[in-house]
Design a protein around this nucleic acid. Structure first.
Lengths: 372, 372
DNA sequence: TTTCGCAATGTTGTCGATAACATTGCTTGC
DNA sequence: GCAAGCAATGTTATCGACAACATTGCGAAA
């Protein structure tokens, strides 16, 4: 089990400059014409073979197969898509891939794309300013894509996206519906209402929401659902704090709240912010969950190992990534449309960070304790 | 500040089936021939203009520009790369993008690629089995790429990668050198030696390492550096636990350790595992950092908000992603080779999870406490 | 003034594949 | 026995751009 036992794998300089198992390095890759010559047939016969045409005499077929194999032929997709006018490449745009949600999403979409025979080009938009986004999109628009998927959507992106003529089908994922929608939360089984219901059942009446950045539609949806549900159930909202998805933003926002801290339940718009909020609460001298319950959204893999382990809404990012891709494929080729998979509804994972509401307002103004 | 004040941005159905600001939906995109017709010149003149040829009469030039603009011309990169034989697309392979390291890496590489005029195609390899990897690579090999970059490398991937003939330059990133190398750690400023030095300075003598999966070269390198440094400094290693990068694996490994727990310092191969290890330690009744110090690697954004905040090695993933891309670009076109950026050395970020070694072996066998 | 030279621009061929159309050579029906 | 019919295969055109070569036209040198 010690690392010295591992087979020593050459790690660096993996390009084979010198010799290769097969295929001459400098020679151009073989084309169907080369294959045709080698097999003694016309290039069109080779093309037909490659496209799966049935009516080829067994003898001819055998020679083509032999030549194909001898030369190590690989089709040139560039040429194919130039002629056929269709490409098998889908562009996907995303912002912060280091967040678990977007990245799971992208990964699932990528795999779904591959299964459908497409390759997913993932494009990172680093900047929030419209000009930078536009230039990235322009580059993208030249790439001969079959369709374009916008995975995480800020308003800037949505705006630029909608004003760009990509000339191919595009789809903007909103990531909202499965989590909680204001107008439809009589469906009490859905996402945020479920989380709030859990806390309300535990006796909580005074809530605080740590929201994501307001230019993200996902954040806005979560905030709306929170407020809607507060109103619907007649609960008290102690406020909505503005975060930016990061633990840091939530930590600072919660730390900066004036005393007294009246809420007994905190709903953070993602797990990272729940983490930051928990640390700030602990540093204010509040115990979790005895004094304050904290609930997150996403269920990132680490959430179960926070201290205390986080109660959170599990979002099925993978299935929603697949679903958006399928939806886009349906736009690209309505004939191939399969009924898009329905993303699984968010599921509440109850862990130790939520518990019964305290009998009375927790003490405030106690000396700050260090954690544990 | 309430969400209802946000401008209402249309969120769904962003494809414009009906009308578009410009550009007819069904019409093929304009080609240089269309532009040439509109400008009353030959297509070659348009092509020359686009390639930046100087010797075009101002009057002609103006008409071309006008036509270009009127038609909203965008070059067709497929055709361009078919003819010119070179593509501006780079493939990048990665495993678990949801880990911060790989994803930052990929993001930085993507941005660097764009700056060099390339587009980075990110391919997710979900499976660890060689056959699945091979089929993905085969698909990739047809994609007319200028080069291929393997970002996170497991042994399976390395093996398949090296036995595939991509016919373009390829580069496997090893992610090891800047973190700690066994053979070269007399450079005491480097990564893991730095972390261990910090703990040794605090009086720690008995260490535990929570390693990443052994088929990842990065994990192996970290383990080697740990063991090398233990030996070099004459410190005691209480063992190397096998983890899989996840908080869960570290939690379970540490929880399963037999009593007594003798180590006073734990080095985890990434921050997620440090998190899992911390929770397991706390549940064993050990205090952090009074009884045991814990140090991670990566410095994920959440690490500062763990409880206690995590001392960790900050890895500059962005710069190493850029560096690998530049290295690949140099292979693609040696003429354009810039001196590749050197990734910043890992930097130790000291937070509250590390402290002086306890005077004696901490108590073990105490009743398990619930966290906090 | 005539011709050469070169700048500006036009025409044709090419990349690798697919599609439309053309050809070959059996089999089959009368 | 001969033509029609069709299966198997070959030939040519095409996608959009770039490149090589061809042409035009104007100014300078003889």
């Amino acid at each position: 089990m010690t690392p010295t036992e591992h087979p020593s794998v050459p790690s660096a300089d993996a390009r084979g400059d010198d010799e290769r198992s097969r295929g001459r390095r400098d020679a151009r890759p073989p084309t169907i014409y080369d294959v045709a010559d080698a097999a003694g047939v016309s290039h069109q016969t080779v093309s037909r073979y490659l496209r799966g045409y049935e009516g080829i005499r067994p003898a001819t077929r055998a020679r083509v197969e032999q030549a194909l194999d001898d030369l190590g032929y690989r089709p040139n997709l560039t040429a194919r898509s130039l002629k056929s006018g269709r490409s098998l490449r889908i562009g996907a745009l995303t912002h912060e891939i280091s967040h678990v949600g977007p990245s799971r999403n992208a990964q699932a979409a990528s795999i779904a794309a591959r299964e459908a025979g497409y390759v997913l080009d993932l494009i990172f938009l680093d900047a929030h300013d419209a000009e930078a986004i536009r230039s990235s999109l322009d580059l993208l628009a030249q790439q001969d894509l079959a369709g374009i998927l916008a995975l995480s959507s800020t308003d800037e992106m949505t705006r630029v996206f909608e004003s760009t003529d990509f000339r191919v089908p595009t789809l903007i994922r909103t990531e909202s519906d499965e989590i909680g929608r204001a107008g439809a939360s009589e469906l009490t089984g859905v996402g945020i209402p479920k989380a709030i219901g859990h806390l309300a059942d535990l006796g909580h009446r005074d809530f605080l929401h740590v929201a994501g950045p307001e230019n993200w539609s996902a954040a806005r949806n979560r905030t709306r659902a929170f407020e809607f549900e507060m109103a619907r159930r007649g609960l008290r909202s102690s406020g909505v704090l503005a975060g930016d998805w990061s633990a840091r933003s939530a930590f600072e926002a919660v730390a900066a709240l004036p005393d007294p801290f009246t809420a007994t339940a905190v709903l953070a718009a993602n797990d990272q912010m729940a983490l930051g909020a928990m640390l700030a609460l602990k540093q204010r001298g509040l115990r979790i969950p005895e004094d304050v319950s904290v609930v997150g959204i996403d269920d990132i893999p680490e959430a179960a190992y926070f201290d205390p382990p986080l109660t959170t809404l599990r979002i099925d990012f993978a299935s929603s990534g697949r679903a958006s891709l399928q939806e886009l494929l349906a736009l690209i080729d309505p004939a191939l449309a399969t009924k898009p998979e329905l993303p699984a509804p968010a599921e509440l994972v109850v862990r130790a960070s939520s518990g019964p509401a305290p009998a009375r307002t927790p003490d405030v103004g106690e000396p700050v304790r260090t954690a544990c």
